[in-house]
């Protein structure tokens, strides 16, 4: 039985967030693997040890601040989960939950969990960009993603970035690195159905999640969609 936690599914629900778990469910089902998805939020007590995967999607900044107050109480559990190599996917501004602080556009500085050494600033300005990037988990995997954010992260470069950007923009015009890759924690500005858009990345996720590398994955359609998207950047 695979246990998946969709954390803050209610608060952090910007758009298209169901896509990632939708495709994971699809292939688990196809391979006859039983699974359960729990949706927990700020009213709930967390026990992360029960889960094989944790997913957190992006949300409105007001909601993110509320989520972070809950998240901060579980800093120790998250730290352990990351160290133990639990599969964690964090998309869009949900990565700010890992920060030392979040400064909102009203100039209020909100204390973050400080799991990672960075700070975040939200300026209410919508920034969108397509991104083509290499993942540092496997540089042969070129991924397509979409950024729709109102915040940015300081400093601009990190020890363990998830992505090296080939096309598109990151937090800063001169930075070609983005996101965080620590053991099996995947976090970046990319949002929406990242795993649907990137079939190779999905295969990697399924492999980590199920600890099997012989799953039946009929992803020809996704491969074609992916190739057509990526080719448009050539």
């Amino acid at each position: 039985m695979i246990n998946i936690l969709w954390l803050y599914d209610d608060l952090l629900d910007l758009y298209g967030d169901s896509g990632n778990l939708m495709i994971i469910k699809y292939y688990l089902k196809q391979n006859g693997i039983e699974y359960k998805i729990d949706k927990l939020s700020i009213s709930d007590k967390l026990d992360l040890s029960k889960y094989d995967m944790i997913y957190i999607g992006p949300g409105k900044i007001k909601n993110l601040i509320v989520a972070s107050q809950h998240f901060n109480q579980y800093k120790q559990q998250f730290s352990e989960a990351i160290e133990q190599g639990k599969l964690i996917l964090i998309s869009g501004n949900a990565q700010l939950l890992l920060s030392r602080s979040i400064t909102t556009s009203d100039n209020i500085n909100h204390l973050g969990s400080g799991l990672l050494e960075f700070d975040a600033i939200d300026n209410d300005q919508v920034f969108i960009s397509d991104v083509i990037a290499q993942t540092n988990t496997d540089p042969s995997i070129l991924i397509y993603g979409f950024i729709n954010r109102t915040s940015y992260i300081l400093p601009y470069s990190f020890n363990r970035p998830l992505l090296t950007i080939n096309k598109g923009l990151s937090d800063h015009l001169t930075s070609y690195e983005q996101g965080f890759l620590i053991n099996n924690l995947f976090a970046s500005w990319l949002l929406g159905p990242i795993l649907v858009k990137n079939p190779q990345l999905l295969r990697k996720f399924l492999c980590i999640l199920t600890k099997k590398d012989n799953l039946m994955i009929d992803d020809q359609l996704s491969q074609t969609a992916y190739k057509l998207t990526v080719d448009e950047f050539k």
Binding site: D130, P193, V196
Partner: peptide
Amino acid sequence: HTYHKDTTWLYD
């Protein structure tokens, strides 16, 4: 207008 290739909204 922006020609971004994002189709996230289809999942909603």
